[in-house]
Amino acid sequence: MSKQVRVISRLDIKAPNLIKGIRLEGLRVMGDPQTFVCQYYAQGIDEILYMDVVASLYERSSLHDVIRHAVERVFVPITVGGGIRSLQDATEILSLGADKIAINTAAVKQPELIAEIARQAGSQAVVLSVECKREQQGWQVYTDNGREKTGRDVIDWVKQAQQLGVGEILLTSVDREGTRKGYDLELLQAVSDAVQLPIIASGGFGELIHASQAAAVKNVTAVAVADGLHYKRFTVKQIKQQLSADGFAVRTV
């Protein structure tokens, strides 16, 4: 049986709005995330990923409202990332009805937080979000939406995180984010070779074929699409049709 691939809608949130930027900078307000999410749900989206790109304590309750509204209408898995700094932050997000939390900055600063959340909520609820920038050799881990260097090598980091119990890896190429040039396939391949975890490819989707290119990498089980859907350049159905035409199994509704 051919590999099953999910299509995930990534919504970058500056609560209460959906925003979109290029290389995680230069934010543009798109509108009410709920409107977008309900359309994608009707089109057969497989999963929703909210990334709080500001993650200030000030607008935290506004993000919570975004999740609360979504879970009332959208009966597919929801992942929330951005600003999760403690077990309590994670528990709070999950109790609102999110299925998974994505964690980046806090995990880098405090890797044992991964194990702590995994013990409490299960590995399946913990997605390691890795923001990667190309170096001369390999890729470096960044935090704070690609602004802060960590000095850590992506491959070393994902191996360590696997040991600590993450359930999935959201692998974002900061270089490709918002460029529509396609996912960083070498990055996906390198991480796929390093860990036995499902990978969500993120950053760079611009053409339908990009989804299939990413899906062809062994451990990539999902592709995240942001502005390709937000600007209505493609529908969920078109992306799935392409994946299906290229030999991948997709969920049909």
């Binding site: 099953q4 497989d46 590995s123 359930g167 089980t221 999902a222």
Partner: peptide, 12 residues
């Protein structure tokens, strides 16, 4: 055979 876990998938 090697299996990716968790199984996070929509399956028929």
């Amino acid at each position: 055979v090697p299996v990716i876990t968790p199984n996070v998938n929509w399956l028929p």
